[in-house]
Design a binder for these strands. Structure first.
Lengths: 201, 201
DNA sequence: CGTCCGCTTGACTCAGATCAAACTTGGTGG
DNA sequence: CCACCAAGTTTGATCTGAGTCAAGCGGACG
């Protein structure tokens, strides 16, 4: 499903015109524990869902960019479970949760699309859990690359910096760079900047 | 949402009477890569979704028991992404994917319940990803316990053996037992069999 | 031109994986 | 009722690999 198709789930609803909100880089859209009143569609920029442990360490659980909806799984929650933070300057459309629920109730087609969207997210999180369950750094990297490689292709260009990839697969960036170096030395991958090719499958 | 309520999403549909299938412990319901034709409701026993790496190591991505539906996120997929294996002797009702989709299209109420169900699963997987992203064994255990503790309570009884918990949070069982021992020694938890109490929050 | 940030490599430490072994428990069948 | 077996639980010894701290390189951007 394309991103614009997703956004469409919200945008084309006959609602009160949604509010808008602009966030500076690093600004917080909502905090864990706050009541869920709204859900969002991102028109520009990039948001992330993070959970901050008591000790202060941050885990990014989800990232979404322009054209994507945000916080849909919270539609049925009383309170947000994570903090939402803008990675860069970001603009969102603000939809009232109650309006959205009412609107999709009336439109099976849109509801079905939201259903499919959530199903995909469940599978995406399962894929990530699989990666995170592996113990060796090289295994995590290979698993990540295999899961993100377009089927049939044997090479791809990542759209995020390796440092972010490291965080996503639960490694320090040093460990990731070393794993990449080892894999390349062993002839498992070939790499040039953000472009990687898998050699032996 | 109660388990029986979930099952109800499928069961109370006016469909051709669903098929049945019985599986012995360890038997496979479907394999990754197979075409998705059916989804299931468990009437007895317990199923797990596992992914097996090339090296042979297994990761359990989901477990479901009596009264729960199974493989719903695959409703919109062409092929299964995981293997489904019975942990113990299990019986399932077999619903044709096409029938289910058609049936929920006609019933906004049931569709909404499925929506809510998937939203909960996304959040559950996020919680697991959070745990798996932590580096220290004791942190993972504390995070797991906090997330599974009924709100307000300060103690709980686990319904699965610690060994399974270890797998779920990405530790060997030895590492888990040692982490538990350390936490108990440090006065963070108290434990008696499968019952645990959190002392300091 | 200078600063920031992603990238890369080195040295050291230590927590968790691994292998091994014993004990406890529950259930089965003789 | 007891012998036996399987599985979960617990503890020990060893070793590897990822975290951590540190330092240097290069490109992007103001």
């Amino acid at each position: 499903m394309s991103e614009s198709e997703i956004r469409d789930i919200f945008q084309s609803l006959a609602l009160q015109p949604p509010g808008r909100r602009a966030l500076a880089a690093g600004e917080c859209l909502f905090r864990a524990g706050a009541r869920v009143k709204d859900v969002y569609a991102i028109t520009a920029g990039r948001l992330k869902l993070v959970r901050t442990s008591l000790a202060g360490s941050e885990v990014t659980l989800h990232r979404a960019g322009e054209g994507e909806t945000f916080a849909e799984p919270s539609l049925f929650s009383e309170r947000y479970h994570c903090d939402a933070v803008a990675e860069i300057a970001t603009e969102v459309l603000v939809y009232s949760k109650a309006d959205i629920i009412k609107a999709i109730s009336d439109d099976p087609d849109r509801m079905m699309r939201l259903l499919r969207h959530l199903a995909v997210q469940v599978q995406a999180m399962r894929a990530r859990a699989e990666i995170l369950s592996l113990h060796a750094a090289t295994d995590r990297v290979m698993c990540y690359l295999n899961l993100h490689l377009p089927s049939g292709a044997d090479a791809m260009t990542l759209d995020l910096p390796w440092k972010q990839v490291a965080a996503e697969i639960g490694l320090t960036h040093e460990a990731l760079y070393r794993a990449l170096a080892r894999l390349e030395r062993d002839g498992a991958i070939r790499r040039n900047g953000h472009t990687v090719g898998l050699l032996k499958r």
